[in-house]
């Protein structure tokens, strides 16, 4: 009987404490606090358990990753960024081009890569339009065109109602043929893209008055890490056409592009971190954009926590390994 009473008492105290904290802290802080407590408490418990050389079930790892990713999405935790040189190089290039320069942005990715790549594509599109550059949008991926339409109609254009189709920007859409498309547009756009997505002939679009081929462009950014992607833009357009190219790619592909930086690639935005750094630079340079949507910065919360969880599990794994070896030796 006394045991039950004690449990009830403890439960009541716990509920009072939880309610008290809930009253003191706003919901967002509360969510952050509880999820962090959950993650780090759990990790410490697993760490202690690892001393007995007990392996962790993969489902427990999955659970931790789930909480580490979901919690900061529900209760955003944001960090300040320090742009690395590879990202700053791209930002500075867009910034230093004189207004009215023509920039081509190619959306070469699919929905799977979109969470990583679309934020940076949106940020750079925004930056170019803000600077007054003329922007040509296109895609080498069939699925990229739909995402491009999505970016333009939902995110970019509503922020720039004064920009006119054909004068300030144009969407020439997707063309099948992978590297073959690049091989042609390096010397002639019209041959591959006779019209834009709205079936307006290229000859009637003001942006293309001075642009015959990729050689006439001032800057190209290719988003996406698949094939064809940034590497193909360098090999088939950047190098032969003498145009500056930058890349925005999924984090897993970034290491493959380092051989091209800085000689053949102006800079590289790798994954969510690259997007976050770019968004941070953009907000810092243009205070009036402080309210813009920054998915890159927001996603750094989940990324940071997930990395910490992974690092902790690597440590736990090693403790288990060494304890296990000692046990074997002892036997």
């Amino acid at each position: 009987m006394g045991k039950v009473n004690l449990t009830l008492l403890l439960a009541a105290v716990a509920i009072v404490i939880i309610i008290a904290i809930a009253l003191i802290f706003p919901l967002e802080r509360l969510g952050q606090l509880y999820s962090l407590l959950l993650i780090f408490g759990g990790l410490v418990a697993l760490l202690l358990r690892s001393i007995f050389a007990k392996e962790v079930d993969r489902r427990i790892i999955f659970l931790f990753i789930f909480v580490a990713v979901a919690a900061p999405l529900l209760f955003p935790i944001t960090f300040s960024e320090k742009p690395t040189a590879v990202v700053k190089a791209v930002f500075d290039r867009v910034e230093s081009l004189p207004p009215g320069s023509t920039v081509l942005l190619s959306f070469d990715f699919d929905p799977a890569m979109a969470p990583e790549v679309q934020p940076m594509a949106n940020a750079i599109s925004r930056h170019c339009l803000k600077k007054g550059h003329k922007v040509i949008f296109m895609s080498l991926w069939a699925t990229g065109q739909a995402l491009l339409t999505q970016s333009l109609t939902n995110t970019i254009l509503p922020e720039f109602p004064e920009k006119q189709d054909g004068i300030d920007y144009v969407n020439i859409g997707y063309k099948a043929g992978n590297e073959g498309v690049l091989n042609v547009i390096v010397s002639n756009f019209e041959k591959m893209f006779p019209t834009d997505v709205n079936s307006v002939p290229l000859g009637e679009i003001e942006i293309f008055d001075d642009i015959r081929s990729c050689r006439d462009l001032d800057f190209i950014v290719s988003f996406g890490g698949g094939l064809p992607g940034s590497k193909e833009w360098v090999l088939f357009v950047g190098d032969p056409g003498g145009v500056d190219v930058a890349a925005g790619v999924a984090a897993v592909v970034a290491p493959q592009l380092y051989p091209y930086y800085p000689a053949q690639l102006v800079g590289i935005l790798g994954g969510v971190k690259g997007a976050a750094e770019y968004e941070f630079s953009l907000k810092e340079t243009y205070p009036d954009l402080k309210d813009m949507d920054t998915p890159g910065l927001k996603m750094m919360g989940p990324q940071t926590l997930a990395h910490i969880v992974i690092i902790s599990f690597i440590v736990i794994g090693n403790i288990i390994y060494f304890r296990g070896r000692r046990k074997e030796k002892g036997q």
């Binding site: 993969r58 790892i61 999955f62 990713v69 997930a306 599990f313 690597i314 794994g317 090693n318």
Partner: peptide, 12 residues
């Protein structure tokens, strides 16, 4: 995201 975590726990 999940598989990277479980693979690195085992491999590293």
């Amino acid at each position: 995201a999940f598989f990277v975590a479980s693979a690195s726990y085992r491999a590293f």
